[in-house]
């Protein structure tokens, strides 16, 4: 498939899923009246539902999907390891810890962007720990072991903070922070997380050329005059900003960054730079599709997005493990 055809079909898919996300919900509204209310409605209940409930959910789904797909593709390109994924290696988990700490200590209420920035700070620590423990070009084994350790630690600390909260509901929300959900998010969450995610995308896109060159090896990359140090910096900050902001409003949604680049790789001819935008569009479609499925399968239960993603992602993960096992055999 040519890049142009791929871009067009992914965009069409994304727009279709975005519209579907706007049209599906428990209130069961007609298509025509919903769209009219979305664009022209003022102050009647229908317009409120479309503009204040469904629109932010669809926008957040798309933004978070782009962030996770992009972060997964960039990390896999940089580490040259198909198992690198923000959820799996503990970056989402440490972002969730940062966000939970900010919320429970009250820092989140101190200034406007405190919440997503705390998520970002958590994610930076997660990424740096991974790079330190697994190293660039670390084997799949060290990467996964480091990831398990960081995920477990971040998860335990998140649970601890929520357990200690004076709020009686907080403990039951451990599931939300570990599984993620877009239910009942509002426009304020879009404004909170959106700008930081956009900045993160920008930083990740700066790494595209180096990621392409890295397929030839580190020496060749340096010979081309591309700085690995600068790339690492943009990558760490970019991944942390997009994953951190996404996680701080929707919890840790796993497997998107693993599944999407894996699905896109054969379509882009294994070019890391091209994989970036393909995974961004694919990630957005995947999260929107999963969020629509969550509403269709168990409409009253707030089925967690992460549960569905894990059901799709885990078999693929097993497949990848099976393939990489041969490296060690």
């Amino acid at each position: 498939m040519t890049p142009r055809a791929l871009f067009t079909s992914l965009s069409v898919l994304l727009v279709g899923l975005f519209c579907a996300s706007l049209l599906i919900g428990p209130a069961g509204l007609g298509i025509g009246e919903s769209l009219t209310a979305l664009i022209a409605g003022e102050d009647d209940p229908l317009a409120l539902v479309m503009q204040e409930i469904r629109l932010p959910r669809a926008i957040l789904g798309a933004l978070i999907g782009v962030s996770l797909g992009l972060a997964g593709a960039a990390m896999q390109g940089y580490l040259r390891n198909p198992l690198a994924e923000p959820g799996l290696i503990g970056v989402s988990g440490s972002a969730a810890l940062g966000a939970v700490l900010a919320l429970q200590t009250g820092v989140a209420a101190s200034f406007a962007l405190a919440l997503p920035l705390s998520g970002l700070a958590g994610a930076v620590i997660g990424v740096l720990l991974i790079l330190m423990l697994a190293g660039p070009r670390g084997s799949s084994m060290t990467l996964i072991l480091a990831g398990i350790a960081i995920s477990a630690l971040a998860g335990a600390l998140t649970a601890l903070v929520l357990n200690l909260s004076p709020n009686p509901f907080a403990t039951s929300e451990i599931v939300f922070w570990m599984m993620g959900s877009l239910a009942d998010r509002s426009m304020s969450h879009v404004w909170l997380a959106g700008p930081i995610m956009l900045v993160g995308w920008g930083m990740i896109s700066l790494t595209a050329r180096t990621l392409d060159a890295l397929t030839l090896g580190e020496d060749a990359t340096s010979a081309l005059g591309l700085s690995l140090t600068a790339t690492r910096l943009w990558l760490v900050l970019g991944v942390a900003a997009s994953v951190g902001a996404a996680t701080s409003v929707a919890g840790a949604i796993g497997f998107v960054g693993l599944v999407v680049p894996h699905l896109m790789r054969p379509l882009v001819g294994a070019r890391p730079a091209r994989l970036l935008w393909a995974s961004a569009l694919g990630g957005a479609s995947m999260v929107l599709a999963a969020d629509i499925a969550v509403r269709l399968v168990l409409p009253d239960r707030d089925l967690k997005l992460g549960v569905l993603m894990a059901l799709v992602g885990a078999p693929l993960f097993l497949h990848l493990i099976y393939k990489t096992r041969r490296e060690f055999a």
């Binding site: 428990p26 539902v49 409930i53 009250g106 004076p166 709020n167 009686p168 009253d300």
Partner: peptide
């Protein structure tokens, strides 16, 4: 559970919510 959008469509004359507890919760 009453979905937020079902509540909005029902258009109540009075809305009675619970007092909030200390600390933050997504709930």
């Amino acid at each position: 559970s009453l979905a937020l959008e079902t509540l909005v469509m029902a258009g109540p004359d009075a809305l009675i919510t619970a007092e909030r507890f200390e600390g933050h919760s997504r709930s």
